[in-house]
Computed example of a mutant assay.
Amino acid sequence: MEQKNGSSFTGFILLGFSDRPQLELVLLGILLIFYIFTLLGNTTIIALSYLDPRLHTPMYFFLSNLSFLDMCYTTSIVPQFLVNLSGADKSISFGGCIVQMFISLGLGCTECILLGVMAIDRYAAVCRPLHYTVIMHPRLCALMASASWIIGFANSLLQTVLIFLLPLCGRNKLDHFLCEIPPFLKLACVDTTMNVYMTFFGSVITLLTPVSLIMFSYGRIVRAVLRIKSTAGQRKAFGTCGSHLTVVSLFSGTAISVYFQPSSSDSQDQEKFMSLFYTVIIPMTNPLIYTLRNRDVKGAMKKVLWKDSDSR
């Protein structure tokens, strides 16, 4: 007899890219390499921010939070995906699906908010340089970072509970490689209008609001930088903000395309690849973006490496 309620399932089937077996083999190797580099790169950023006193600033405090977020975010998704890619078993337990959705969504929302907070930090650094240390004092930085985590996971808790209260009427095949809201709504056998509205409302708070704040901050930053007469000063100011703006464009742009585009069967493959981009590729490239474009990070890396070589 067919099960009628999602809570009675033993688990879900993550179809992922099972219709393309050759692609799965390629993805298995690529994702494993990307995951290793994600852990190494973000661990390096955190270690450098801790070891070098010159990086004990609000900017690198938030960057360390972002790196830790990226490691956790990728870890909440990639290991399960690698297991599914490596064998015929594509299943995930009901509890595992709940945990994955709650953690990955919470970390994703937190990252969006944290990127907005980092824009405020960059605004204070460029537009209020004389008062920067007073404005961005350690207590405020810790408060802003904590608020990002709390708001992100509070939204995730609400969205996850609402999703898993939906009756699925025996449907347990999820056409995705992770437990994510948009494909999960397609399993429901009832009207999901309220869930769509709640998802939209949550996305406005955790995604569109930070993006609007970032755009406003960088509008003011550009005006302030253009007033700088020195070309070297302009280059330094733009270089400081360029890395953050690149990360925002990549992460927020792909997330918006997934959560705000009309859902259709034709766009399912596109949603999978876009999700793959912001859950796996972007967390790996973030350390590279900040390292290659940032003199302070490169200087700290050389300093740590030189210390290690001298000690030998």
Results as ranks from 00 to 15, higher is better:
Pro138Arg: 11
Arg312Ala: 14
Ile221Met: 09
Asp52His: 05
Cys141Tyr: 06
Lys307Asn: 15
Ser243Arg: 12
Asp191Phe: 06
Cys109Met: 08
Arg122Val: 00
Cys97Trp: 00
Glu111Phe: 10
Ser146Pro: 05
Ile150Val: 14
Gly41Leu: 04
Gln100Asp: 00
Ala300Thr: 02
Lys4Tyr: 11
Leu157Tyr: 06
Ser264Pro: 07
Asn294Leu: 09
Pro287Glu: 09
Met215Glu: 14
Leu48Val: 02
Leu158Pro: 00
Gln159Ala: 11
Leu165Thr: 09
Ser146Lys: 09
Val83Pro: 04
Val258Arg: 02
Phe81Met: 08
Ser230Asn: 07
Phe34Asp: 12
Leu82Thr: 01
Lys173Met: 05
Cys97Lys: 01
Lys229Asp: 15
Gly202Cys: 13
Leu208Tyr: 13
Asn286Met: 15
Tyr73Met: 10
Ile45Val: 12
Ala237Asn: 08
Ala88Asn: 12
Leu115Gln: 10
Leu158Thr: 06
Ser264His: 11
Val134Arg: 14
Glu24Thr: 00
Ala188Gln: 03
Thr206Glu: 06
Ser217Lys: 10
Ala142Asn: 10
Met144Asn: 07
Leu187Trp: 00
Thr209Cys: 13
Gly233Val: 08
Asn294Ile: 07
Phe68Ala: 12
Asn294Phe: 08
Cys241Lys: 07
Thr110Val: 03
Met301Glu: 10
Thr206Met: 10
Asn172Pro: 00
Glu111Cys: 10
Pro183Gln: 02
Ser263Met: 15
Pro287Lys: 06
His56Pro: 01
Leu66Ala: 12
Val126Cys: 09
Pro283Ser: 03
Tyr290Ala: 07
Gln100Met: 01
Pro138Gly: 03
Asn294Glu: 12
Leu168Asp: 01
Trp149Ile: 07
Gly239Ser: 15
Thr254Gln: 11
